[in-house]
Nucleic acid binder design. Structure first.
Lengths: 240, 240
DNA sequence: TCCGGAAACATGTGATCACAATCGGCCGGC
DNA sequence: GCCGGCCGATTGTGATCACATGTTTCCGGA
């Protein structure tokens, strides 16, 4: 079994399938599921101690959000990354996230700016401690906290769908973190926010996304391209 | 009852909830559901002659795609349009669709170009005949047929989500069609495709989207802004 | 040793049912 | 006349079951 799920035992006021959704979403973002390996309804239900129904709904929602892929067998799995999809994801992020940042800028007040600074400090700490998982979580939180200023209703779901597709791959293939941080794009973004400079903010977010792409392990990317040429057989890491 | 659904009787090989999804999606895009009015599972199931289960899954998928909104009561409805949401939808379309078009351009061959020309001819015919519904359908088909060249996997779902949110509102508030067509942006796009000119294509698509926004009935937009100021009471059209 | 087929198993889909929460209308009281 | 609380009807949620499809396993034959 490739994964142990955190047994959604928090009995929040939300519905059961919402809790299952959050558990699965977290597990996906951490790369806990092997791409291509089928996620069975009964399997997830057994891990989380629920019945089939909430799992069905959670899985279907994740498929609609493109976090999971519907196979021909009508089974679901984390989709394999392909060079074309990676390129598209990057292009979509570069189209949407700078836009979201610039639109959020007028609504960023002192409180939110302080919150962003605090998150960025946490990121630096995680980087210094080499805590990859925490770094990725906080990085996502930094971006979403910025974009959420002004309470956008349309852009956030689109961006979250992209992160859901991008996250597990990044988690699995990120190389040495910290190495590529010759320039801290978040500091640039914070400065742009303080100066209320839309263009500088756009550039900082664009650069941050590109840097994120650059931090992918080169050997993983090479394997990706190789696999794309011979898709019949996946490389070793896809095996158990 | 505000709507009669086309009784999903086509027994395609697909799953039942997929057929329900398609029926509901078509009805939503045609503006057949009154925004804010709750769509009940049992009601839809009765209209379509299915049991509750496929309807549940179809509704949940449409909620995930932001075509429907999850109310606090855990009931679903077509969301009301607000000025902020309209602005965001427009910005997202302007960010994603020109990008999708430019990325598709290198993959548009003669066959697809001919297909696009044929759709555009159909659009002109629908415009001349004053068939609003057919015009909107073909317009969507034109855009998606263009974007689908190169088989994008990421951008298409994002754009379809936007159309799903934008479509019902446009269907309900479109003014006199044809009037705003002093310039046919589709012809411009087709010319740009033939010349393989990315910049011209981008401009044509951008202009087409802006023109589409301009074709919204001004009185409807005014009512929208008025309602946004006093959201407690919706205007007459929201009542039965 | 390798291949093919059949049986046992696992899985997704859809239906039906129970139940708690919510909504609607009705009535009584202020 | 208007408001608040009560009761019935409606609704979403979750559980369990039946069934068709697809998958794996195991065994016999070449």
């Amino acid at each position: 079994m490739p994964v142990t799920l955190p047994a959604a035992e928090r009995t929040a006021g939300a519905t059961l399938h919402e809790q299952v959704y959050q558990s699965l979403r977290g597990a996906i973002m951490c790369g806990r599921f092997v791409p291509g390996r089928a996620l069975t309804i009964r399997g997830v239900a057994a891990m989380l101690g629920t019945s089939l129904m909430p799992v069905r709904e959670a899985l279907r929602r994740l498929v609609a959000e493109r976090a999971l892929e519907l196979l021909a067998n009508r089974r679901v799995s984390v989709p394999h990354m392909t060079p074309a999809r990676l390129d598209e994801l990057c292009a979509a992020r570069l189209a949407l996230e700078p836009l979201a940042a610039v639109r959020a800028l007028p609504h960023v007040d002192g409180t939110r700016l302080a919150e962003l600074r605090q998150i960025d400090a946490g990121i630096d700490a995680a980087l210094a401690a080499g805590e990859v998982e925490r770094y990725l979580q906080l990085n996502q939180l930094f971006h979403l906290t910025l974009y959420r200023a002004g309470e956008p209703q349309v852009l956030i779901p689109l961006i979250e769908s992209l992160w859901l597709q991008f996250g597990p791959f990044m988690r699995a293939t990120i190389g040495r973190i910290g190495a590529s941080y010759v320039l801290d794009r978040h500091v640039e973004a914070l400065a742009a926010l303080e100066r209320r400079d839309p263009l500088a903010l756009r550039l900082a977010i664009e650069s941050d996304i590109r840097d994120g792409m650059g931090s992918l392990s080169h050997e993983e990317l090479l394997r990706l391209y190789r696999d794309a040429a011979a898709p019949a057989e996946r490389s070793a890491s896809a095996r158990e």
